[in-house]
Amino acid sequence: MTTLTKQPDSGLSTVGGSRKSRKRGKSGAGFRAMGDLKIALFFIAPAMIGFVLFYVVPTIRGIYLSFTEYSILGDPEWIGIKNYEQIAKDPLFWNALGVTLEYVVINIVLQTALALGLALLMHRVAKSTLVRGALLLPYLMANVIAALLWFWMLDYQIGIVNQLIEWFGLPRVAFFGSEEWAIPTQALINTWRHMGYTALLIFAGLQAIPASVYEAASIDGSKAASTFWRITLPLLRPVLVLVLVVTVIGSFQVFDTVAVTTQGGPVNATRVLQYYIYQRAFAQQDFGYGSALAVILFLILAIVAFIQMKFLRGSQSDLD
């Protein structure tokens, strides 16, 4: 049995003794295993069937389709790695990769920094449930609605934001129309939408840090800034890694904002990977090529997630 109650550590040192009890009764386990397995399978089955039907099968089929030429009507025709060869030479793919990276960097850096700030404020200052709840409001809005709302507010001709800008005597900004602004604008919109939710996840991580650690720090005379850098941030690492992995994957898959506003334009400025996949597959009926692009996006995400977990040691905590 593991101990359920955790005794406060007596100082900053977290080296401590290993109090994990590894005594596990071996007798009887094998005897009960078979019965457990049946029940376990029964409970796993609904999730498993869904997972196989809607995830494993489509994934395998997608990988298969990426080696074919397929227009959805008719039968797929095996063409080997030709799609991948073309992608390597496809300027639109490399452009899409660049555009997506630009979006991810702006979105993730801002979103994580703002969310961390918000989480600290929630933790220390804003104890009211109303205020904490209000931070989550943008996230409750459907992506498409949020995008359209901002599309309208930031419109060059009739948008309220441009009216304000003009009122201050500055020239109007083509937020969605100019190639320079289109991606930062959309990254900012989604930062606005997601930062409350991200802050909530980080906030949960903050609450898991025992108050005793902070007590000890203040007794030792640690200043607020160094407490943040030396205690809060390191102890928050596993949660931050989780948040980063999830938000980076989500950010790479940006689609709906682009789809309802700029649709890849102006020129190629917002043709993010996910939108390019959609265009090739659904608009141009090139499902083989679209699948190959999707497989590449999948690999990119797998590598990014692996690097994040590995180098930020997301599966380990410094608390024990």
Partner: peptide, 9 residues
């Protein structure tokens, strides 16, 4: 109008 000012219009 410039093309960039017509997006969404």
């Amino acid at each position: 109008p410039k093309l960039e000012t017509t997006v969404g219009a």
